[in-house]
Design a protein around this nucleic acid. Structure first.
Lengths: 187, 187
DNA sequence: ATGTTACAAAACGCTTTGTTCGTTATCTAT
DNA sequence: ATAGATAACGAACAAAGCGTTTTGTAACAT
């Protein structure tokens, strides 16, 4: 792919991320993104139809990578197959988050975090679907499968939100413990 | 209070609700609200500073009533004090929701439901805080209190979201069972 | 009945949006 | 190295939406 395209694309993403760091999504204008990215107006619209489109593409890249990495992880040393740390996809996810490549945490911490968390949850749902189908016991036979999946990924995402709002005082391992404590009893 | 004020206020709320029924919040213009409510432009701005302000006020009225009613309920026949149905604040909440006064369900079902759910969760947090403090056992001594509260109200709200997305096939009683099944094991 | 207050309607300046177009700079392939 | 393709620039544009102001009218409370 043309280097120029790649350059402007990342410039836009970076500028967008920077702005999100100290402004609400709704209050960011396209012009601000353009200025921050130092590109021409028509160039922006050549890459993205609207601001919403930019958001969607950013999320696609962001969470696409995260989930892919999680799936890889679960393939290489299998879910719950041994007790070595990290022993769950979620713990792996948490550590991946704390490494904070691509400034994921910055985006999840910003005023408009809700938007990203919602995308995040959708991605997670697919992951949980593939990972937890075989984890069910007789205990919860009365619970519909999709309810359970929704509950698990929601709990994870909302934990992240809580974690961030509390200024990330806990380590990934601690969070993983909390998460297990509320999820494993119902599996 | 002046009858005229009350009339326009409710007219605006109603128009806003109608529009939200088939348009995304972000794509609704003030002018559309004005036309739908059949009022003058300046009148709208005499009542609400912005569209966001209108949203906030609507949520305040909506969830204020719901939570108040829930608190009343818990006072009158006490939480978990007897086994009569409804025996939990949440079951009461669910039934209250299904009665659907003020078109709460309509708003929670619309494209912009996320916004309302977020307000809903904030209100719920306070409720859970007051109701669940004494419910803890030694079992979960390792879990921070605010984590638990967040987990409980998040789970409830996300269940509602799941319920609505699935076209509300379950009854309040069923939902209450699901909710207990994922919450009580960790208390 | 009277003073007060809310509403309607129109016009206003301003900001933001998304598009167009001619020019310039930078790439890729040969 | 060069030619042809393509991306970026930048200025200008119409259109849409916002929030304010003003003037006149109707409804209200007491």
């Amino acid at each position: 792919m043309d280097r120029r395209q790649q350059k402007t694309r990342t410039a836009i993403f970076k500028a967008f991320g920077t702005l999100l760091g100290h402004k609400n999504y709704n209050n960011i204008t396209v012009q601000e993104i353009i200025d921050e990215a130092n590109i021409g107006r028509s160039t922006f619209y050549a890459h993205f139809e609207t601001k919403d489109d930019l958001l969607k593409e950013l999320c696609k890249e962001l969470f696409g990578h995260i989930i892919d990495s999680a799936i890889d992880c679960s393939h290489t040393h299998g879910l719950y197959s041994d007790n070595s740390v990290p022993n769950s996809v979620f713990c792996h996810l948490l550590q991946h988050l704390e490494e904070n490549n691509n400034n994921v945490l910055g985006l999840l911490s910003c005023e408009s975090s809700e938007i990203f968390l919602r995308y995040f949850k959708d991605s997670l749902n697919e992951l949980v679907q593939t990972q937890f189908v075989n984890q069910r016991r007789e205990k919860n036979i009365l619970l519909p499968n999709d309810f359970l999946i929704n509950h698990i990924s929601s709990s994870f995402v909302e934990m992240i939100l809580w974690w961030i709002k509390g200024h990330r005082k806990q380590s990934p391992t601690e969070l993983d413990q909390y998460f297990r404590a509320v999820i494993e009893p119902i599996l």
